[in-house]
């Protein structure tokens, strides 16, 4: 194993960006990204919620309950984006055998699962007053529920192996196969006749009032920053756990919590 790692190091030597594929090099960088993203998340959430609750008007057809949109849509988008990011790092990990890639995908999974759960929960509470039901087996809702199960399956499988490398590879396969579900979620409202409304926002066009759209987009970036911050925090913990005993960690006392 040490030999293949040595070989892959030789193969990529001389490309500066591979430097950050080393957990030791990435540890402080992750800390910096985490701090910046915490700041962004807090500021953006404050601005987004202010516009969403105190500037955006009452919706003409739905009344006030539509304000769930400012967390429902960002959570649903992030559930999909985090999944794609997770699958991406799994693919890189399988292809190049880089240790940090699997740590990244493990760090993303719990946050993605939370985003999917929040999207489903807020959707249920929004559905009750607008559709008259908390849940229907509609294509959009069902595929999002499958996304949540994929996250849970990934996390469970990664943790089920005593040999972490086996767990990394087995769970990466689930993540990659499950990635087909993401376009299904996105296009479900076009492909099937669903109770869930179609997309209000598409690249290049939108059917929402500007002030509502602004608040929703700001909240989306707040969620995005939150997901990055939390993933960076978790990847640092992963590095401490997995690189234990490595030279660079030393006594571990130099590591900031």
């Amino acid at each position: 194993m040490a030999r293949t790692e040595q070989q892959s190091n030789d193969r990529f030597a001389g490309r500066w960006f591979w430097r950050f594929a080393s957990p030791a090099q990435f540890y402080p960088v992750a800390g910096m990204i985490e701090k910046i993203c915490w700041g962004l998340a807090l500021v953006l959430a404050a601005v987004g919620l202010y516009i969403g609750f105190f500037r955006a008007p009452t919706d003409a057809t739905q009344g006030e309950v539509y304000r769930v949109i400012y967390i429902h849509v960002p959570a649903a988008w992030m559930a999909m984006i985090v999944y794609l990011a997770m699958a991406f790092w799994c693919a890189i990990g399988l292809a190049f055998g880089t240790r940090l890639s699997f740590m990244m995908s493990h760090a993303l999974a719990p946050t993605g699962a939370i985003m999917a759960a929040v999207a489903l929960w807020t959707g249920a509470l929004w559905g009750r007053p607008t559709w008259g039901t908390y849940w229907v087996w509609d294509a959009r809702l069902t595929s999002t529920l499958i996304l949540l199960f994929l996250y849970i399956g990934y996390i469970a499988l990664a943790a089920a192996f005593d040999d972490k490398k086996k767990g990394d590879r087995a769970s990466a396969l689930i993540a990659l196969v499950g990635a087909v579900n993401v376009p299904i979620i996105y296009f479900s409202v076009q492909w099937w006749n669903t109770l869930h409304q179609g997309a209000s926002v598409r690249p290049g066009s939108s059917s929402m009032a500007t002030v509502m759209l602004t608040a929703m987009m700001i909240m989306t970036f707040a969620f995005w920053a939150y997901c990055v911050a939390v993933a960076m925090n978790r990847v640092r913990t992963q590095i401490i756990e997995r690189e234990r005993g490595a030279q660079w960690l030393g006594s571990g006392k130099g590591i900031k919590p």
Partner: peptide
């Protein structure tokens, strides 16, 4: 009161807060 829909709006935001 969110126009009488407070349960649904704050139930959503509250769940997010608890999750975070």
């Amino acid at each position: 009161s969110m126009g009488g829909r407070g349960f649904f709006v704050w139930g959503s935001y509250g769940a997010l807060a608890i999750a975070v």
